[in-house]
């Protein structure tokens, strides 16, 4: 491993809950019904991953901790029992940016999580950022470990959110 990878910033989410939904034999696009049910209740999705393999569809999503019961009800009951739901309480998102399209940003991060025995419930790559879903109580430790392989710029913004975006009631 050579040199530290420069970073513009790192962000923590608020405390979230993760729902891992799974459906065997679901028709292609079955996840759309779930997402429409969530949108109908104006549920903010902080993280969403959809995967399909050999007839099984899996949807992994993170929502505000107080919304997890609603997810279980909407996803399972509102879709006629097609989906099963497994929940993990108290997870958090750790996002680093920009990754600069460097593949070693991902490999080094995953090595840090593995060597530090930090749980990884999900990983997402976007145009500019890498996001890891981990235990909420481990966000600080994960951040410390990551800063051993990434160089965060001086005077960076705080990791924790300063404001919370809420739906406007009209």
């Amino acid at each position: 491993m050579t040199g530290l990878i420069p970073l513009g910033g790192m962000k923590f989410s608020e405390e979230l809950a993760l729902a891992a939904l799974s459906a065997d034999g679901a028709p292609i696009g079955a996840e759309v019904d779930v997402l429409q049910a969530l949108a109908g209740d104006r549920v903010n999705l902080f993280y969403l991953a959809v995967a399909r393999s050999v007839g099984r569809t899996r949807v992994c999503l993170c929502v505000a901790a107080d919304r997890i019961k609603l997810i279980e009800r909407l996803a399972v009951e509102a879709t006629g029992g097609l989906w099963t739901c497994r929940s993990v309480n108290s997870v958090g998102l750790l996002t680093i940016f920009p990754h600069g399209s460097r593949l070693d940003a991902l490999t080094r991060s995953l090595r840090v999580f593995a060597e530090s025995r930090l749980p990884v419930f999900g990983v997402a790559s976007t145009l500019s950022a890498l996001t890891f879903v981990t235990a909420f109580e481990e966000l600080e430790r994960a951040s410390e470990r990551l800063r051993e392989v990434f160089m965060l710029r001086e005077n960076h913004a705080p990791f924790k959110p300063e404001f919370r975006v809420e739906p406007v009631t009209r």
């Binding site: 940016f97 976007t126 145009l127 500019s128 950022a129 913004a157």
Partner: peptide, 9 residues
């Protein structure tokens, strides 16, 4: 912008 993806786009 504090949204790194929007900045990049």
């Amino acid at each position: 912008d504090d949204d790194p993806d929007l900045v990049e786009a």
